[in-house]
Write a protein that binds this DNA or RNA. Sequence first.
DNA 1: GTGGTCTAGACCACG
DNA 2: GTGGTCTAGACCACT
Lengths: 121, 121, 121, 121
Amino acid sequence: MSFEFLPDKPIYQQLIDRITGELIRGVIRPGEKLPSVREYAVEAGVNANTMQRVYKELEGMGITETKRGQGTFVTENPERLQTLREERKAQLIADFLRDIEALGFTREEITDYMTGRGRND
Amino acid sequence: MSFEFLPDKPIYQQLIDRITGELIRGVIRPGEKLPSVREYAVEAGVNANTMQRVYKELEGMGITETKRGQGTFVTENPERLQTLREERKAQLIADFLRDIEALGFTREEITDYMTGRGRND
Amino acid sequence: MSFEFLPDKPIYQQLIDRITGELIRGVIRPGEKLPSVREYAVEAGVNANTMQRVYKELEGMGITETKRGQGTFVTENPERLQTLREERKAQLIADFLRDIEALGFTREEITDYMTGRGRND
Amino acid sequence: MSFEFLPDKPIYQQLIDRITGELIRGVIRPGEKLPSVREYAVEAGVNANTMQRVYKELEGMGITETKRGQGTFVTENPERLQTLREERKAQLIADFLRDIEALGFTREEITDYMTGRGRND
DNA sequence: GTGGTCTAGACCACG
DNA sequence: GTGGTCTAGACCACT
């Protein structure tokens, strides 16, 4: 097994996105133990160092906690996960709107297009 | 004078976005002569090599044409500009939707949020 | 029952510090019998291997003695406890002063701050 | 040339401490360009990856900014450096006092010792 | 030239 | 077994 990665974004970033995405969707739950660095590295088809970096970054984000010699666990604190979700959403949208305007589109034109109105007119 | 650039996106990309955005908004018009690479580089506060790359990519995109000894001009072809506009829009949205899913959100949740419905319910 | 441990220091070290601290404060007295490795491990909420290591290091430091079949006892020798106390103090301070200098502070600035002078001037 | 490193602390941490120390002492000034990752790595006698990590961590701390293709610079913002200094000092002392108490010493006993009174009595 | 990412493989301390 | 650090060497995008 080995994941598919986009060529234009760092692998470690895509892995972070993937894991936080699973957290947001509830695939991974608070308190749950994540696979070991080495296990996950093999599963994802990346080097252990790359996975190590992912785990460290997640810990820096307050998403995981590591218990020495035992492994890495999703933080029990559900608030953090909730704010994570909202932060992500707000950031995603802010970036998108910024791009829209930089390229000369209006917000309405884009949202109309996305909600399907653009295709039916 | 020197433009403001976001730290997370290549400067040359931001310049391309800027120029195509001005094209889409009509700030720059078909047939119009663009500043020389050196002039524009100074104005933007970037290295001449960076500006050179911008012009080269714009030409590769079929947006500009170089007339030797005269300078760089926006293509006269209005169809190209129209397709450019649509290509950009489609690309922008496709990327956005990809990110949404990668991070565990649903398309509806995001569009609701963007169109304001998410805040009023 | 299970002790609280700081995340950045080895658990076995924190346990050694705790026990020597109790010795210094007189909570534990020379000649006193310590709990068995297993008992103490359960009480502290740590792995028995970890506790084993703590006892081993304490014995290596000359703080405890093991009487086969009877258990582990704090050394009767009061001089050893006295030197232990001084060694600890000197080590603690030496490390602290080293850190101070490594980070660009002067010894005076820090001691002034600690003794309260830094806040009242 | 190659720096001396203590064996019990990660090299990258010691390098971070060193650089922030130079910042605190004013050896390095706001806006100044730091040596390139590779240069500094050679000078310190460490691998370029290790130095890379140091620079990234510094950036994460808000101490440096990197201008793509140009290098890494100390942030111009002097407030950040000031708070850095105070944070460092407070952290250093808090850790020290914690250790003191964990080991059964009183704060007075230690500060007396450090300010020289302990040696003259 | 610059910072940044990735791999491969080794070694360590901790529990 | 776990996470963490370090080296060596390669490759990439950006300026």
